[in-house]
């Protein structure tokens, strides 16, 4: 907002700020949001629309049966285990970069989730959880009654 349209200096600054904001916005639309650092394994991406969200995580080489997904209110909890390959006799590792072990992550969503309608798929090592927004959480349009 222009604080004082007659003050040239300040309106110039405002215009400059607006230009910068617009640039940032276009950059965001182009490349998506800035990369955040995961709090714990695994890293997650969150896709949203007004009706819900899709949370994705790259979890290569996991047995889907070892995954435990639970939702309570607006919190999604993911627990799992990535087991290591069992090496046979006479086999030795040269390199070992792939992590293994247990993981647990709780993630808070910006809305309450309809837990009964949550669906998850695991494909090509990518987990995708569809979380519909609870009806009670959706904004309600209020009709204005004319008197």
């Amino acid at each position: 907002m222009l604080s004082n349209p007659f003050n040239f200096r300040s309106s110039f600054r405002e215009a400059e700020r607006l230009r910068r904001d617009m640039n940032e916005l276009f950059e965001m639309l182009d490349r998506g949001p800035r990369l955040s650092v995961a709090a714990t394994y695994p890293a997650m991406n969150v896709w949203t629309n007004p009706d819900g969200a899709i949370v994705t995580a790259e979890l290569p080489g996991i047995n889907p049966e070892d995954l435990e997904i639970s939702v309570q209110g607006d919190t999604l909890t993911l627990r799992g285990n990535r087991s290591a390959d069992a090496l046979g006799e006479g086999e030795a590792y040269h390199r070992r970069e792939r992590g293994n072990g247990q993981f647990q992550r709780a993630f808070q969503l910006p809305f309450a989730v309809d837990a009964a309608k949550v669906e998850a798929t695991y494909e090509l090592g990518v987990l995708s959880i569809t979380l519909p927004r609870a009806e009670s959480d959706k904004p309600r349009k209020i009709q204005v009654a004319s008197a």
Partner: peptide, 14 residues
């Protein structure tokens, strides 16, 4: 595969 009808709101991996 970008989920259709959704926008990426928060990202930790590319």
């Amino acid at each position: 595969k970008r989920p259709e009808g959704y926008t990426l709101a928060y990202a930790e991996y590319r």
